[in-house]
Amino acid sequence: MPEQKEQVVHRVLLGKKQILVTEEEPLLVQLERAGIHVEYQCREGYCSSCSIKLLWGNVIYPFEPLAWVQSGYLLACCAIVKSDIEIAFFD
């Protein structure tokens, strides 16, 4: 029997939208694939353009980003989603 890798899936709530994401890739690419426009520049954690509000839930960073991440925010280009989360752009 081939080994089946189980993919962990989390829900990302954004306003009235719901996007399913895995832990395999950072949030940014998965949001883009879902057709959501997110600001970006460096895509490697130093410019802070993709900073998004994290209302609740957990994310981790496999590598600590160079940019300052304000508390209550996440950096989409390098954050790995670890639970269901709710995010928001500007107020």
């Binding site: 520049q41 460096c42 130093y46 410019c47 802070s48 353009s49 160079l66 940019a67 300052w68 304000q70």
Partner: peptide, 17 residues
């Protein structure tokens, strides 16, 4: 130049924060 500036602005954001 923009790539450099993105890094510089992170530098001043760190100082301010």
């Amino acid at each position: 130049i923009a790539r450099d500036e993105a890094l510089h602005l992170t530098g001043t954001q760190h100082m301010l924060n």
